Amino acid sequence: MFMTTGCVSQALRQTTSVQRNSTVEVISLYQGAIPGAIQTTDLENIRDVNHPDTFIMDITHPSITAYFPDPTIANGTAVIILPGGGYSGVSIVKEGYQVAERLNQLGVTAFVLKYRMPLSQSMTDKSTGPLQDAQQAIRLVRSNSQKWQLDPNKIGIMGFSAGGHLAASAAVHFDHAVNDELAQYNLRPDFQILIYPVISFMPQITHQGSRDNLIGPGLDPAQLRYFSNELQVNSRTPPAFLLHAGDDQSVPVENSLVYYQALHQHKVPAQLLIVPSGGHGFGMRNQFDWFNDLGRWLDNMALLTKKP
C-alpha cells in the first residue's frame, strides 16, 4: 500500500533534487491496524510550514519513504534512516531526505522512517511505540529484499539525535520484539550509523527532553536502564559508525564516548569520529564532510560491493 500525506509531499518539494534515475516511493509502515495503537484523530502537524527544514510533529500514522538508487550502481545495501527531533517530531528533510539522496549516490537504497511519537493518547505504551516502528521497518525492508533487490544481510539502521537513540535501541534490543507479531522475524540490523546520538538516559549525560518524552514523567529505574543503550551492548550488537561534534551543547559527546567504550569492551567493530565543531543538529551541513568518512567505512565493511 502506497500513501503520500500532505506533510510528506510538502517536505519532498523542499529537498534538493533527487539524483537522476532514482525513484522515491512513500509506503505505509503497517497494513491495517497498528498493534498497540489507540484509535485517535490524526495529530500530525508541521511546526513551521515556512521553514525549509520541515519538522513534523505528533506523528500518529507512520510511513517509510523509499529512495531507490540508479539500478546501474545499486549494490544491494539498504539503510533505514531515523531523523531526530527529541521524540517530539522528526526533522524529515535535513536528517532524512537529504541523507537518503547522498546514500543513493553510493548505490545504497535508503528508507526514511517517519515513526510515531510517544503519545499516551495514541498508543498503549508510549515508551515502546517508536521502537516497535523501528523494528517493523527492519522487518518490512528485509522481507521485501528480493522484490527490492536488496541483500538481506546488508540492512542497516541510521539515526540522528533522538533518532540515534531509537536506532541504537533497535541495535541492542533486536532479540526483544516489543510487538509479539514480530518475534518470528530477524530484527537485527546488520550495522548501525549513529549521528550525534542520544545514547544514555542516565542523568549525567542524557538529553532530558528526549528521555522525558519517551519514558516520563515518572522515571522508572528499570526503564532508565533499558533505554540506556550503552548498558545493553553485548557481543552480538551490530558494528557501528558514530559521529559527534565536540562542542555539542544539546547532546553531550559523552553519549557517543560511552557507547563506543561499551562496543569496544564487547569487541564489536566500531569507528568513532569526533569533529571539532558544528554543535548539534547539523545534518549534512558541517564544514567537515563527515559523509566521506562514512562512505569509506561502508566500503571497508564491504557494504558498497555489488554481489556478482
Results as ranks from 00 to 15, higher is better:
residue 184 Q to H: 15
residue 203 P to K: 04
residue 275 V to T: 07
residue 187 L to I: 08
residue 246 G to E: 13
residue 253 V to A: 11
residue 208 Q to N: 14
residue 199 I to K: 00
residue 221 P to V: 08
residue 246 G to A: 13
residue 232 Q to N: 11
residue 270 A to T: 05
residue 216 G to N: 06
residue 195 I to P: 03
residue 235 S to M: 12
residue 235 S to Q: 15
residue 256 S to N: 02
residue 273 L to M: 10
residue 246 G to W: 09
residue 278 G to A: 05
residue 296 R to T: 15
residue 236 R to N: 15
residue 231 L to K: 04
residue 192 Q to I: 06
residue 260 Y to Q: 10
residue 212 D to V: 08
residue 187 L to S: 06
residue 206 T to N: 13
residue 270 A to E: 02
residue 296 R to I: 14
residue 274 I to L: 04
residue 284 M to P: 01
residue 251 V to K: 00
residue 275 V to C: 03
residue 238 P to A: 09
residue 194 L to M: 05
residue 244 H to M: 04
residue 227 F to Q: 06
residue 238 P to V: 03
residue 212 D to R: 06
residue 257 L to Y: 06
residue 274 I to C: 02
residue 198 V to P: 01
residue 268 V to H: 12
residue 272 L to G: 00
residue 269 P to N: 03
residue 281 G to Y: 01
residue 241 F to W: 10
residue 255 N to S: 04
residue 205 I to M: 09
residue 207 H to F: 08
residue 235 S to L: 11
residue 277 S to T: 13
residue 235 S to A: 14
residue 219 L to N: 04
residue 219 L to F: 14
residue 284 M to F: 09
residue 241 F to E: 07
residue 228 S to Y: 03
residue 242 L to V: 08
residue 273 L to N: 04
residue 285 R to K: 12
residue 220 D to L: 09
residue 234 N to P: 05
residue 188 R to T: 02
residue 197 P to M: 07
residue 182 L to T: 11
residue 294 L to I: 06
residue 230 E to C: 03
residue 288 F to V: 14
residue 281 G to H: 02
residue 280 H to S: 08
residue 230 E to I: 05
residue 191 F to H: 08
residue 259 Y to H: 05
residue 247 D to C: 02
residue 290 W to F: 06
residue 285 R to H: 10
residue 190 D to G: 03
residue 191 F to I: 09
residue 240 A to E: 09
residue 194 L to V: 11
residue 227 F to C: 10
residue 258 V to N: 01
residue 189 P to F: 04
residue 290 W to G: 00
residue 227 F to N: 06
residue 249 Q to G: 14
residue 198 V to Y: 03
residue 296 R to M: 15
residue 274 I to V: 09
residue 237 T to G: 10
residue 247 D to F: 00
residue 293 D to S: 13
residue 185 Y to V: 14
residue 202 M to Y: 11
residue 241 F to Q: 04
residue 211 R to S: 07
residue 271 Q to L: 13
residue 191 F to W: 07
residue 246 G to T: 11
residue 240 A to K: 08
residue 261 Q to A: 13
residue 182 L to S: 05
residue 183 A to V: 13
residue 185 Y to L: 11
residue 243 L to N: 03
residue 270 A to R: 11
residue 194 L to G: 07
residue 262 A to K: 05
residue 192 Q to K: 02
residue 223 Q to T: 05
residue 213 N to V: 09
residue 271 Q to N: 10
residue 243 L to M: 04
residue 191 F to E: 14
residue 226 Y to P: 14
residue 262 A to Y: 02
residue 291 F to R: 07
residue 208 Q to M: 15
residue 224 L to N: 07
residue 220 D to P: 05
residue 262 A to S: 09
residue 243 L to P: 04
residue 207 H to M: 07
residue 269 P to V: 05
residue 205 I to S: 09
residue 271 Q to R: 15
residue 288 F to H: 13
residue 198 V to A: 01
residue 238 P to Y: 02
residue 202 M to D: 13
residue 191 F to G: 12
residue 207 H to T: 05
residue 208 Q to W: 10
residue 255 N to H: 00
residue 279 G to H: 01
residue 286 N to C: 06
residue 273 L to V: 11
residue 292 N to F: 11
residue 212 D to E: 11
residue 199 I to M: 01
residue 243 L to R: 03
residue 200 S to V: 10
residue 239 P to I: 01
residue 235 S to E: 13
residue 273 L to C: 06
residue 183 A to N: 14
residue 258 V to Q: 02
residue 285 R to L: 11
residue 221 P to W: 10
residue 219 L to C: 03
residue 263 L to Y: 07
residue 269 P to Y: 00
residue 196 Y to K: 00
residue 215 I to Y: 01
